[in-house]
Design a protein around this nucleic acid. Structure first.
Lengths: 347, 347
DNA sequence: CTGTTAGCGCCTTCAA
DNA sequence: TTGAAGGCGCTAACAG
């Protein structure tokens, strides 16, 4: 018998053609069934859906994406998956994208713009429908890559005056300002801002500048402190010890993050110092520890989940607009979300 | 002029052929350059790499995967991204896979086997090279899907006697047993196991059974308690209050998780009850709060990162073995990792 | 070590 | 509303 010259064996999985054959229609009709059901007769729809059920057919994403030059994924780069800060944003993105059939491609940059660049480069091969990034600091090359890709780009945890991409974030200076006013309203005057030890947390610097502005508006003298200790909790204790001692002790400490603040509360507990009576303590982040400390920590909850959700929604809207060739101008490019001051016992 | 009947415009991006033309070789050679550099002459390699650099070429994953019927991704389903328990495992998987060029496809099941099934089904279209799941409870359909896919499957956070897939986990009964012995060695005799309120945490049940076995071995009477309060922290307080009161108060509480234990510690702090003097407290999970509480919480650290790392490594080994057609029997199918009892102040 | 040929499975385009 | 033809960009199989 004459066998074909050579034959590549396929993946072995059922294909669109198998389903079409079983349903007694052409492959094209089955393809339409998936892409816009409306264009297929009701009776045929039933036959097709039965055939799909029977064969357990799953569409081959590669073939479809190759043919249509359109990916069914959204790439996302976050600084760090563990640690819980960005996990909620990722969760929101997957939650929001799932109903629309987009698959999340996740990569972690480990806080490095080079690793972010590598991740974006790797994404490109997947022809993602859109890319979601974290923060607003990127390498030149990354910016180039994104520009060339000409796909929607959304920055989460970002808030700048002249955004290059769609951005979703909150204002750190406002956080600093609002916290300062919050403390002022409660009668505190000698309010000190405690920096993190590392200076690479841009958000903290922005909160500090908001604090300084607010203090000046209130005719108070801004005072900042940067602990020496490298461990967060120790640094918090150091700040508390240093700033509440001396001749002119602070009456409120505004910490750049919850871990530092936790260190202060812990110090207070061990030394049996009454907080907030001796000195109020306020943090930022609303980490899971915040409401478990004694006293519970007054802090600021950033819109972690909301940022992911809004980012994903803007992506969906934009993709739909592009597909329908409708104007994208109605889609909000600058999404400034609100944070929440969580009033607890420590301030 | 005769124009071609119809022409689809490509994606517009540079293709393998563009690179090949620029380098003065055939497309196939460039393809080989990517897949096994060794099979290409040194001088040609240089020409190719220059051409890639010049054009900024990125391989189209879809075309490659379609042609080779081999995906360059690994699908992973976890119960919950936010919350931090599984985030570290995900981080480990991405960290480990990245050097090998595999892209992570992440999905969250929200603790539902149906959603897990949907995620696995969605993955199938991406022809993942392997799938990593969490836990050992799955729907019939999922098991079928996996069997039909005939790709490596790894279960993390799993430990069963007759594993269907490669599994990476630790023994919850052993945790219960070891904690019990730990408390016994420190002189505690009236040790009570505190269940979570919800009964769907299989791990907790397994730890309880380990506890019960150990107690019997020690000729002690196992006692368990299930709080009524629905909020974890309140439930922990309730357990502490209930179990340390009465005629025969417990002298050690083994909590099924850190949050419950934190509730107990918090209760102790508020009521000025000395822990561990009045009653020792031990948790499970080593959440970030554990070392920030007062007293700091003695607990068990599950190998969160390690599980992800080992899972990814087994995937890599298996894929390599399959590719090289070498036996896969040497690859460990049952990976039992060790946890660590973290001794702190509370027990 | 390098090139040629054909096809992976789907979708775009055109035609009916 | 449905079908036929061909190509998306790459790689397996074969040939040299």
């Amino acid at each position: 018998m004459t066998q074909p010259a050579r034959k590549r064996r396929g993946s072995g999985r059922t294909t669109l053609h198998d389903v079409a054959e079983l349903a007694g229609v052409s492959a094209m009709t089955v393809s339409r069934y998936f892409n816009n059901k409306d264009g297929v007769g009701i009776d045929i729809q039933k036959r097709i859906s039965a055939a799909i059920e029977q064969t357990g057919y799953v569409r081959n994403v590669f073939a479809g994406s190759l043919a249509s030059a359109r990916g069914r994924s959204v790439g996302m780069v976050i600084p760090h998956i563990a640690g819980g800060v960005y996990a909620e944003t990722v969760q929101a993105v997957t939650d929001t994208l799932r109903p629309f059939g987009y698959q999340l491609l996740l990569a972690s940059s480990n806080y490095s713009t080079e690793e972010e660049e590598a991740a974006v480069r790797a994404f490109m091969g997947w022809a993602p429908a859109a890319i979601i990034l974290t923060g607003q600091k990127r390498s030149r090359k990354t910016t180039e890559l994104l520009a060339n890709a000409s796909i929607p780009v959304v920055e989460t945890w970002a808030h700048r005056a002249r955004p290059q991409h769609i951005q979703v974030g909150f204002s750190n200076p406002s956080v600093g300002r609002d916290c300062t006013r919050y403390l002022h309203e409660r009668g505190h005057r000698r309010i000190v801002f405690v920096h993190p030890q590392r200076t690479d947390d841009m958000g903290a610097n922005d909160r500090a500048s908001g604090y300084e502005a607010a203090m000046r508006e209130l005719d108070l003298t801004p005072m900042t402190f940067r602990p020496q200790a490298s461990v967060l909790l120790e640094a918090g204790a150091e700040a508390f010890r240093t700033l509440t001692g001396g001749r002119k002790p602070a009456d409120a400490l505004l910490f750049s993050n919850d871990n530092l603040a936790a260190g202060a509360l812990l110090h207070g507990l061990r030394e049996k110092i009454a907080i907030p009576q001796a000195c109020a303590v306020m943090g930022f982040g609303d980490l899971s520890i915040a409401d478990k400390l004694v006293p519970s920590l007054t802090t600021v909850r950033p819109p972690r989940y909301e940022m992911g959700k809004i980012a994903a929604m803007r992506v969906i809207e934009l993709l739909r607009a592009i597909e329908e060739d409708s104007p994208t101008s109605a889609i909000a490019r600058d999404n400034l979300l609100s944070y929440e001051i969580v009033e607890r016992e420590s301030a």
